[in-house]
Simulated scan of single mutants.
Amino acid sequence: MVLTKIREMVIEGEGEEAVALIKQAMQANISVRDIVSEGLIGAMNVVGPKMASGEMFVPEVLMCAEAMQEGLVYLKPFLKDGDVVSSGKFLIGTVKGDLHDIGKNLVAMMMESSGFEVFNIGIDQSTEAFLEAIEQHKPDIVGLSALLTTTMPAMRDTVNDIREKGIAVKIFVGGAPVSEEFAKEIGADAYCPDAAETVVLAKAMLA
């Protein structure tokens, strides 16, 4: 079936082939909603667990996510309200003083590929920038990333300020120096060791 082939091409990171198959599916009057949910998001639902189990590695996952994005870009003009059912809103950024973004961007891509509406506000983001973005986008979950031990205090400060404002949002934290213990200590809702686990935790928390 063509939807199965689309899923396979995305998993293999073959964006052009996936788009060609999407065109075939549309010519066969398969709905855009089914193409997205069963073909594209369906592929990432396979990729996520494979990454978590160590069967797939970051470069392969990035290729899959990029192939999925190619499919979405092609389908965008044909999407109608209701074709893509959002899993929730997810805002992510790297905290003040930290310029790392590869891990953050992978999380953003995986979340978007899994049906979340993602707002990636970039690197070196102050508490004020996070608060402004939360006010603007009204996310269900905020993800804070830190790759340096020296920027972990900024992560703590951002969590504290969000909590002090009484904003009803789940806070996820992750990055090389971050641990489950640190996440609990600063009052985050979840520690995310990798992109695949972030998707799993987010879906479970918003279920």
Rank of each mutant, 00 (worst) to 15 (best):
V2H: 03
L3S: 06
L3R: 06
K5R: 11
K5W: 03
R7N: 12
V10F: 00
G13W: 06
E14Y: 06
V19F: 01
L21A: 15
Q24N: 12
A28C: 02
V36W: 05
V36E: 01
G39F: 03
I41E: 06
I41F: 01
V46D: 04
G48K: 00
K50L: 02
A52V: 02
A52M: 12
G54R: 10
E55Y: 09
M56R: 12
F57K: 08
V58P: 14
E60T: 02
L62M: 15
L62T: 02
M63D: 00
V73R: 11
L75P: 01
F78A: 12
F78D: 02
L79S: 04
D83A: 06
V85R: 11
S86M: 08
L91N: 05
V95S: 06
D98E: 10
D98K: 02
H100S: 05
H100G: 08
G103H: 01
N105H: 06
V107G: 05
A108C: 06
M111W: 01
E112P: 01
S113E: 02
G115C: 05
V118E: 04
I121W: 08
I123D: 04
E128K: 14
L131S: 03
E132Y: 10
E132D: 13
I134Y: 03
I134V: 13
E135C: 04
Q136Y: 03
H137C: 10
K138Q: 14
D140S: 07
D140K: 10
D140W: 11
V142Y: 12
L144D: 09
L147C: 07
M152F: 06
T158S: 10
N160M: 09
R163D: 04
K165P: 09
K165R: 15
I167A: 10
K170I: 12
V173D: 13
G174D: 08
S179N: 00
E181H: 03
F182C: 11
K184Q: 14
G187H: 07
A188I: 10
A188S: 08
A188P: 03
D189T: 03
Y191K: 00
C192N: 08
A195Y: 13
A195P: 13
A196G: 13
E197N: 08
T198A: 15
L206D: 07
A207F: 00
